[in-house]
Amino acid sequence: MQNFEKRRDRYNAFASFENPLVNLSFELEVPDFRPYCKQRGLPSFHFFLYHVLHAVKGIDNYLYRIYKGEVIKIEDFWASYTVLNRDDNLNFARFVMTDDLNEFVARSVASAKEAEASTKLINTAESLSEYDQRRNIFITCMPWLKLSAIEHPIYEHKSYDIPSLAWGRYSAPRADGKLSMTMAVQAHHGFIDGYHVHLLAEAIGQRIAQTLAS
């Protein structure tokens, strides 16, 4: 929490706002990982999700939460995201994070299949303790749309502390070997500035590049 104490005054300032959220949409450029995934039989969404969540985990500002009126730093979080079930309705996939790429993808695929097969809404926060509810990152992907911006539903703005990430359709193959998409990051401004969104974008690209080079 030493890093948080350096910005506690910023947190206190934004925490007094009725709506302390910052929401940024930007074009994310990363190395095109689709050929790599195709060669190895890895679903591209789950590969990308792995790098997004591990990039988040490496930046303290995305791990601060408000718990029982105090700011804490969580050590880990669930891997979770939205899916469509067989009725074309929203559902939630959730599983335990792992550093191993292949195991992460296997768990992610299995969790998605479970959520897709369920007509009931599953993996909601209701089944979790108050602390475990804080151990989350909200992820939404809309591959049908060229996303430009998004506003997430918020139960109560002042107590909102879990970052929400969303992205849309990938670009077509590019001559420069890059892949682009619009990504949106929404978070408590007491924890996250535009600079930290920049750090996340850089970390995602660097992680993917390292994997492709290995």
Rank of each mutant, 00 (worst) to 15 (best):
Q2K: 13
F4I: 07
K6N: 10
R7Q: 14
R7L: 12
R8V: 08
D9F: 06
R10Q: 10
Y11M: 05
A13D: 09
A13T: 13
S16D: 10
F17S: 06
E18R: 14
E18F: 10
L21W: 01
N23E: 04
N23C: 12
N23V: 05
S25M: 10
F26C: 14
L28A: 07
L28D: 06
E29R: 15
V30Y: 01
V30F: 04
P31E: 10
F33M: 05
F33P: 00
Y36S: 04
C37L: 07
P43Y: 02
H46A: 12
F48Q: 01
L49M: 10
L53F: 12
G58N: 14
D60S: 15
Y62K: 03
Y62F: 15
Y62S: 05
Y64T: 06
R65H: 11
R65D: 11
R65V: 13
I66S: 07
I66Q: 11
V71P: 03
I74E: 12
I74L: 14
E75Y: 09
D76F: 14
F77Y: 13
A79E: 01
S80W: 00
Y81T: 03
Y81K: 06
T82C: 15
T82F: 15
N85T: 11
N85L: 14
D88G: 03
L90P: 08
N91M: 05
F92H: 04
V96A: 15
T98K: 06
T98A: 05
T98Y: 09
D99Q: 02
E103K: 14
E103N: 09
F104K: 00
V105Y: 03
V105P: 01
S108D: 13
S108V: 05
V109I: 11
A115P: 01
E116V: 12
T119E: 08
T119W: 02
I122W: 11
I122K: 08
N123D: 13
T124A: 14
E126L: 11
S127L: 10
L128C: 09
L128G: 02
L128K: 08
S129Y: 08
E130H: 12
R135M: 15
N136F: 03
N136C: 02
I137H: 02
I137K: 03
I137M: 05
I137S: 01
I139Q: 04
T140Q: 13
M142P: 00
P143K: 13
S148F: 12
A149Y: 14
A149L: 00
E151M: 04
E151G: 06
I154A: 08
I154G: 03
I154L: 11
Y155V: 09
H157S: 14
K158P: 01
S159H: 08
D161H: 01
D161N: 07
D161K: 02
I162N: 00
G168P: 00
Y170L: 15
Y170V: 11
Y170H: 10
S171W: 06
P173K: 08
D176Q: 04
S180W: 03
T182P: 02
M183D: 02
V185A: 13
A187K: 02
H188M: 11
H189I: 08
G190C: 06
G194H: 05
Y195D: 14
H196F: 13
V197F: 02
H198Y: 12
I204H: 00
Q206E: 15
R207Q: 11
A209L: 10
L212I: 02
A213C: 06
S214A: 15
